[in-house]
Design a protein around this nucleic acid. Structure first.
Lengths: 206, 206
DNA sequence: GTCTATACTAAGATAGAC
DNA sequence: GTCTATCTTAGTATAGAC
């Protein structure tokens, strides 16, 4: 909220960076404050000078990293593009957020942590899920209004749009150790197939 | 593989039952062997007489509970029903497996554990995901063959079928503490909307 | 703001009596 | 097969010097 004077400047940012890497790699429980300290190259007690608890550190790690994506989705919604183009670009953002970003690659950890730390779940829901769904709903509504999309039930429709990316993100993490990960869970192929099917479904011709 | 003489008979089964409840409620890391022992009403050392490690106990908990659903899906595939009816019943099974069963309600825990215990991930993938996808692929192929379904790209299609249920299961667990959980993430409504959209998408008329 | 040192707790697991 | 007792390790977090 105050200091973006330098890039990855302060010790605090350095801790967030290393801690995020560890949470992504090993999950919440298996990431100890000792390991974070070791990765940063300071003593454990120093971490506690910057963050009051492990929980607070984790929340801080998750909070950075989604804003860019929600903002990008809102920009698409507010653009003057054709609805099909909006949808295509929106899918790009959703898949990027869930499979490329560090926060997205924490999906299993996030899911598991959200219920154990209710405040975590609430924050994540309000600042990411709600934001993304709202922007996507706007894109769909505009397309239906203009006649570019068929008028369909939006409840299931939003699941058809978001869930494949969520599921793919999850499976890529769950089975990250598989040798044939990229053949079995290929982001670009799934996204392309997904988009084609959505456009067929949304086509007003039928 | 050997003993289904009585229902929930042995001490071993009792341990599995209580441990599963705890894993569902608190996740893997927060469920200690002490708590399992306490829930069963025995000493911790006794648990180790039945299971060599916490990891083995967890694997055993997950392994029981999915077989019924994969079998049910195969039965639907092998039935003589119309393709649309098969799909409808298949969705019932998928949503039940993911939102009603104890194993399904472990979805965040399972996701987080699968990558930390690669053997877990492999087992889960081979005995559940692969089985479910194979049966569903059979249902779709038969429908396309008979002309009841349009011939569509099966990669994205399988995501459109499974992922909404996966996502819903996940969110219901992540946000289980929300007061408006049932209004926000209603299983029956989502399932119905999901099915209607799938039938539209698969309609060969277009 | 970082260090050393340590308090405190609890985990997974084992030994050996009964 | 269950118990009591214990080993070993490691975690989160804090106190207080520098």
């Amino acid at each position: 909220m105050a200091h973006d004077r330098n890039t990855l400047s302060s010790r605090r940012d350095e801790i967030l960076e290393r801690a995020t890497e560890l949470f992504v790699a090993s999950g919440y429980a298996a990431t100890s404050m000792s390991k974070v300290a070791e990765a940063v190259g300071v003593q454990k007690a120093s971490i506690y000078h910057h963050f009051p608890s492990k929980e607070a550190l984790f929340v801080a790690c998750v909070s950075r990293g989604y804003q860019d994506y929600t903002a990008a989705l809102r920009d698409i919604r507010d653009s003057a593009l054709p609805a099909t183009e909006k949808l295509s670009r929106a899918l790009d953002v959703v898949y990027a957020a869930l499979t490329e970003s560090q926060a997205g690659r924490m999906s299993p950890t996030l899911a598991e942590t959200a219920r154990l730390i209710p405040s975590m779940g609430k924050t994540f829901h309000d600042t990411f899920i709600e934001e993304m769904h709202e922007a996507m709903a706007g894109i769909l509504a505009a397309g239906m209004e203009s006649g570019e999309f068929a008028r369909l039930d939006c409840l299931g429709l939003e699941y058809l749009i978001f869930s494949p990316a969520v599921d793919l993100s999850l499976q890529r993490q769950m089975f990250a150790s598989f040798e044939d990960l990229e053949e079995r869970y290929p982001v670009d192929k799934v996204k392309a197939s997904h988009l084609a099917l959505l456009l067929r479904l949304l086509s007003p011709a039928a």
